[in-house]
């Protein structure tokens, strides 16, 4: 099967500093491919190169069979882009915006209205078709922007941080729509710094840090790099770090309030040690849980970027428009 995207040694320098540093990857047709990394990792720059908004300093990519250096107009015909900011026209209605996009992408006149009508119904925007874009909520704007990226029947859709700044309900609704997109045979290239989002949506993930790809794998095999189990125990009162120090012989320990997380290969010894700890310090165990490592654990192990850094970015991102 021909790949939807084949990037080879793609590089972008800004003032001699590499924003994207010789990255190579393939995106298979009809898959959801995630680019996961912290802010400034080079995710957006990669998308901008792939869709012709900036020229690569070195290397190239084949998108839908066309070289981005030689046939960028052909590339643009076949891709839809949902930028981080919903950048349609505030003064035009939802319908006018989609009509303008369909015209700009040379959708045959006889198909325009049918396609727009179908998209508006799929994205539950039909009732708001006469609303001005500028008056919509962030979540609805995002939906219209995704619809605009699909109006010309694109083969590949690029989404740059699609749920950043959305409330929980809008973000969940958008993720549902992206899952639906996959069923229609469209290839989705998604950037995100939301680890759970990448885990839920993507068939494969590339982790990018400081402009370089650290690993490309499925979320499940990504998690397998952390070859430990996670034993979580919650106590009836907060745990002092000093108390939990005794568990470190069994593996890495994280303490957060009443919760202790122990990354260990020896689960039975871990449970035994937790029981002893509760007896010695007269603590009551509220519950014990055993989980496989999360994608976040794998991300931390692979990149060395602390999970709290990603969390802080996530919270910061949540406040963005």
């Amino acid at each position: 099967m021909q790949n939807a995207i084949e990037a080879s040694s793609l590089t972008k320098y800004y003032n001699d500093l590499p924003a994207v540093d010789h990255i190579s990857f393939n995106v298979e047709k009809e898959e959801i491919f995630g680019f996961l990394g912290p802010n400034g990792a080079g995710k957006t720059t990669t998308i901008r190169m792939l869709v012709g908004l900036t020229t690569p300093s070195e290397g190239t990519a084949i998108v839908n069979g066309y070289d981005i250096r030689e046939k960028i107009v052909e590339v643009k015909r076949h891709v839809g882009v949902v930028p981080e900011t919903s950048n349609l026209y505030d003064e035009l209605t939802v319908w006018q915006n989609l009509l303008f996009m369909s015209r700009l992408y040379h959708v045959p006149k006889q198909e325009r209205k049918t396609r727009i009508r179908s998209l508006l119904k799929t994205f539950e925007l039909w009732d708001r078709r006469q609303f001005k874009f500028g008056r919509l909520s962030k979540g609805l704007k995002r939906r219209v922007t995704v619809a605009a990226a699909l109006v010309h029947d694109s083969d590949i859709v690029f989404l740059d941080e699609p749920t950043t700044g959305l409330d929980v309900i809008s973000a969940r609704s958008l993720r549902g729509l992206l899952n639906e997109l996959k069923k229609t045979g469209i290839t989705v290239f998604l950037t995100t710094h939301y680890i759970e989002e990448a885990d839920q949506l993507c068939d494969r993930i590339a982790i990018i840090v400081n402009g370089k790809i650290v690993k490309i794998a499925t979320p499940e095999s990504m998690k397998s790099v952390v070859n430990t189990q996670v034993v979580e125990a919650s106590f009836d009162s907060p745990i002092k770090s000093a108390i939990a120090m005794g568990l470190e012989a069994l593996g890495e320990v994280e303490v957060e309030g009443c919760m202790v997380r122990l990354f260990t290969k020896d689960v039975s010894s871990a449970i035994e040690a937790l029981t002893i700890l509760s007896k010695e310090h007269r603590l009551k165990i509220e519950y014990v849980n055993m989980t496989r490592p999360s994608l976040e654990d794998a991300f931390v192990k692979l990149t060395g970027v602390a999970s709290d850094v990603m969390k802080a970015e996530k919270e910061g991102g949540g406040r963005q428009s």
């Binding site: 869709v51 012709g52 908004l53 107009v73 052909e74 643009k76 015909r77 882009v81 930028p83 900011t85 950048n87 349609l88 026209y89 505030d90 996009m101 700009l104 992408y105 040379h106």
Partner: peptide, 14 residues
């Protein structure tokens, strides 16, 4: 400023 010019630059036109 608002990125709407980029929207045009994403289209298959020169």
């Amino acid at each position: 400023r608002v990125g709407a010019l980029e929207r045009l630059m994403l289209a298959p036109i020169s």
